[in-house]
């Protein structure tokens, strides 16, 4: 229940209507969106029960490892109602054509593989919010100071998922496990996304805001 309440509102991309469509415009829009959404996600993390009790250093380490997984999982959940399209924001939906134009076809297809997986499973909002918190708590940072505290956070979230499934899907005893087993694909997809945006950063043709840059650099 706390995670449902903490879930941020939808976000808007607001692409500049005066700029003609191009790869640079699409990537600029996405990088700006990502930067704003990261601010929102850091606020969200503080509402995960147990997260604020971690040391500031460990909170930072988890976010530095898990931020792209959180961004992608949110895009995936928003896209569950559509066919072969990614809802990056309420007003920014990318289809295959736009993905090609932005040079994001491979990455977006990888994200669509996740969408397909969760569609087949019928992922619910309750499951999505817990899974997202688990992705953060389980982001496998190498810099954790108090790994027992992080383990306790993982256990609480894992317990919440199991409890939810026991109450709502008693006919499928393995559903919590099935959901957890989707996380490797999320990790893999996030790593591709980070790699892709790191090379865009090195090209230097797309303006990026400071928080997005800071977190990309944490991954470099």
């Amino acid at each position: 229940s706390l995670l449902l309440v903490a879930e941020p509102e939808g976000i808007f991309a607001m692409p500049d209507p005066t700029v003609p469509e191009s790869d640079i415009k699409a990537l600029t829009t996405l990088c700006d969106l990502a930067d704003r959404e990261l601010v929102v996600n850091i606020g969200w993390a503080k509402h995960i029960p147990g997260f604020p009790s971690l040391s500031l250093a460990d909170q930072m380490s988890l976010l530095q490892s898990g931020w792209m997984e959180i961004l992608i999982l949110r895009v995936v959940f928003r896209s569950l109602g559509l066919e072969d399209k990614l809802v990056y924001a309420e007003d920014y939906v990318m289809d295959e054509e736009q993905s090609k134009l932005a040079g994001l076809l491979d990455l977006n297809n990888a994200i669509l593989q996740l969408v397909k997986k969760y569609k087949t499973m019928g992922l619910e909002k309750e499951e999505f919010v817990v899974l997202k918190a688990i992705a953060l708590a389980n982001s496998d940072s190498m810099q954790i100071e108090d790994s027992e505290a992080v383990q306790r956070l993982q256990d609480v979230l894992h317990g919440a998922l199991q409890e939810y499934e026991a109450a709502h899907r008693p006919e499928d005893a393995r559903r919590a496990g099935k959901l957890i087993m989707t996380l490797p694909l999320l990790r893999q997809t996030a790593a591709r996304a980070v790699q892709h945006f790191c090379s865009i950063k090195q090209d230097g043709r797309v303006p990026m805001h400071k928080l997005f840059l800071e977190l990309l650099e944490a991954k470099a």
């Binding site: 601010v39 850091i42 606020g43 503080k46 500031l56 250093a57 909170q59 930072m60 976010l63 530095q64 400071k210 928080l211 800071e214 977190l215 650099e217 944490a218």
Partner: peptide, 15 residues
Amino acid sequence: KEKHKILHQLLQNST
């Protein structure tokens, strides 16, 4: 950690 100033600030701000 010095390098991650914005993240640090955002986490320290209340709410």
